[in-house]
């Protein structure tokens, strides 16, 4: 912990602006200063323009649209105040979608987290073929969502490859309708998401484990600590910052989950796998109610923002200390 923050802190200081040499005459100094400013603008401008055009402006536009009844084609002239928000927040399908998002957040933290830590701890030990296993574990994450989603879609229909495989290993009875049964589809989706994103969590944890000094484990071993005790009292606490950052990424990803659901189930059957993002696309874009869809987008944005800020304020605070230079 302390090692990380110190090194980040000193790096930030080293990268800070170098004070101008007092020996330069005043005119030259100001010319150098304006030249420096120009240079900063030149380097920042492209990114800034892209950011403003493709992030800030759309966010602001969505906020404006959300107060109108607008089909996306005609003039923006039917102001309806907060009606779109009231409609979304009283629609059982949207509330169901929101519940699904939060369920995925909680399940990811409870299931993917411990699983990733466990596998990372195993992969961090000397093991034959470790590099190969690490690669295999990471492969699903590298695949694009659309490719992985389509692959599962092709594997999961009734009587499809998965069912055939299950029959061949002895399950001869009726199989669940993996994607077509509203009671099963959500769990199928969660299993696919776990398969897809577990590799990323494992790689993060493995990277975090590299930062845990070996000397501490060695000292503990000399003191007679078992492998399990070493992991519990030394490795895990030192892995804290990594776990907290992973949890943050996982939460935001779960709240904004779209592509995998869209490809795999489209939010169905009977809205069982709907997330806020799929709801937004289907009810906003699909039904030509851009104003309503924008209101849903704003709700999704606010929910994610509030959670992100709260998390940063209360959980990531310790990890951020020293990492941000305040001038």
């Amino acid at each position: 912990m302390s090692l990380t923050t110190t090194s980040t802190g000193s790096a930030a200081t080293a990268a800070g602006p170098v004070p101008p040499s007092p020996a330069l005459p005043r005119a030259s100094r100001s010319r150098q200063k304006s030249r420096g400013l120009l240079l900063i603008w030149i380097f920042v401008a492209p990114a800034l323009i892209v950011y403003v055009t493709f992030v800030l402006v759309p966010v602001a536009l969505a906020a404006v649209y959300s107060f109108f009844n607008w089909n996306g084609l005609g003039a923006l002239d039917r102001f309806i105040g907060f009606d779109n928000y009231i409609r979304a927040l009283s629609d059982p399908i949207f509330l169901g979608a929101m519940t699904n998002n939060f369920l995925i957040v909680v399940l990811s933290l409870l299931i993917q987290g411990p699983l990733a830590i466990g596998i990372a701890l195993l992969l961090n030990r000397p093991l034959r073929g470790r590099a190969l296993i690490r690669t295999l574990v990471f492969v699903p994450y590298v695949l694009s969502e659309v490719v992985a989603g389509l692959a599962f879609r092709l594997m999961l229909p009734p009587g499809g490859p998965l069912d055939t495989m299950l029959t061949s290993i002895g399950w001869t009875g009726d199989k669940p309708l993996w994607l077509a049964d509203p009671d099963v589809a959500f769990w199928t989706l969660f299993a696919v998401i776990t398969w897809k994103y577990l590799g990323f969590a494992i790689i993060l944890m493995l990277a975090g484990l590299q930062g845990v000094p070996e000397e501490l484990s060695e000292a503990a071993a000399i003191d007679g600590a078992s492998w399990w005790q070493t992991q519990r009292h030394i490795t895990l606490p030192l892995l804290g910052p990594t776990i907290r950052i992973w949890a943050f990424l996982s939460m935001i990803g779960s709240l904004q989950l779209f592509d995998m659901v869209w490809i795999l189930t489209g939010g169905g059957p009977l809205n069982a796998t709907e997330t806020m993002a799929t709801y937004m696309v289907e009810y906003g874009n699909g039904r030509s109610q851009i104003g309503y869809g924008s209101a849903v987008a704003v709700i999704l944005f606010v929910v994610s923002l509030v959670i992100a800020l709260l998390y940063q304020r209360y959980v990531l605070r310790r990890d951020m200390r020293g990492a941000i230079t305040r001038g």
């Binding site: 092709l154 229909p157 309708l177 994607l179 077509a180 059957p269």
Partner: peptide, 15 residues
Amino acid sequence: FNPGFLATSAQQGAG
């Protein structure tokens, strides 16, 4: 109807 019709698409692929 076919089993799993709630998740069946209309025009994409053999399924």
